[in-house]
Simulated scan of single mutants.
Amino acid sequence: MRIKIINPNTTQAMTDGIYRAALSAASPDTEIVAVSPRCGPVSIESWHDEVFAAAGVVEEVHRGEELEGGFDAYITACYGDPGLNPAREVTDKPVVGIAEASMHLATFVGYKFSVVTILPRWKMVMEEVIGRYGLKERCASVRCTPMEVLEFERDPEKGARELYDMSLRAIREDEAEAICLGCAGMVDFAADLQEKLGVPVFDGVTAAVVVAEALVRLNKKTSKNLYYNYPNIKEYTNCPEIISPK
């Protein structure tokens, strides 16, 4: 099995961390390829960032299908799941978002989950994503740290403190029974947090890997019956050749 994980931002160190986390969850016979788009934001912390990141995600799925020998599944590794729906339109392989995977898995082990994430302005994005997946009734809260995405790599000790404090507040004040870490840059914190908090803590990358593997093993592909059908054939002006629908 081959899975391509797309980090929608262009920070290679973060892509490397995502790759390591994915390998820790993948089965021995699964090949993991982790990439970033050729252009786009170094981190994703706003709607503006998401627009350009989403285009890079879709281009990388095109590349996987046409230039890299094909994959059995794709993962988009940003917690806003940018580009997830258009990516599903350009392949019949499963495309899994890390937010979608981890939130749904959290509902299997707790009635209410909380998302602990980055800057307060990101809360609106998270609330929209939660609503998109029909999980408003199962989400206890969205708790935001004061930290930017790349700060978690630069200052992991501060990151660990902030995640613990916000997670503890979600459990005590919001009655959360599980925690979803709302950024792919938080992959290294999940195990320690789970031990300290005593509740399930989900990192989106590892959650998405096991979901993608399960879909492939169950021989489930993206439905082309209606909404995720391939894009209509047309010319795309001044775009890479692989992007134009055929």
Rank of each mutant, 00 (worst) to 15 (best):
K221T: 15
A54L: 08
C239S: 14
I179C: 10
F189Y: 15
A77V: 15
T91P: 06
P94W: 03
L218G: 03
K196T: 08
L218I: 06
D174V: 01
R138F: 11
I5R: 01
V61D: 03
P200A: 09
E127I: 02
Q12S: 09
K112F: 12
T222E: 14
N232M: 10
L181I: 12
F152E: 00
N229R: 15
A191F: 06
E65P: 01
P156M: 08
R143V: 01
L150V: 07
I5A: 03
T11H: 00
E45N: 10
V90R: 01
P240A: 10
K246P: 15
A77F: 11
M124A: 14
V115Y: 00
C139I: 03
G131I: 04
L150T: 12
G83K: 02
S43A: 14
R38F: 11
E66M: 10
P240D: 11
A170I: 02
P240W: 12
H48P: 00
A25F: 09
L23Q: 14
N229S: 15
M14C: 08
P231T: 11
L135A: 04
E148H: 11
A99T: 07
Y111Q: 12
E59I: 03
V129D: 00
L163V: 06
Y111V: 07
G56K: 00
L215F: 11
K220E: 13
W47S: 09
Q12A: 11
P231K: 09
D16W: 06
E66S: 09
E153C: 00
V142Y: 01
S36V: 08
I233W: 11
R63G: 08
E177W: 06
Y79P: 03
E195C: 03
R172S: 13
A208N: 05
V149K: 02
A170S: 15
Y164R: 13
V210A: 00
N7K: 06
S27Q: 13
G134K: 05
A34I: 05
I233E: 15
V216T: 12
E137N: 12
R121E: 14
G185S: 14
A53P: 09
Y228C: 11
E177L: 04
D203R: 00
T10R: 02
A140F: 04
F71H: 02
E148A: 13
A34T: 15
C180S: 01
I32Q: 05
R143M: 11
R172F: 09
K234D: 10
V216E: 05
N238T: 07
A13K: 13
A184R: 07
E213N: 01
A54H: 07
T206V: 11
A22F: 04
A212E: 06
R20E: 12
P82T: 08
A214N: 12
W47M: 09
M126G: 02
D155H: 13
P240I: 09
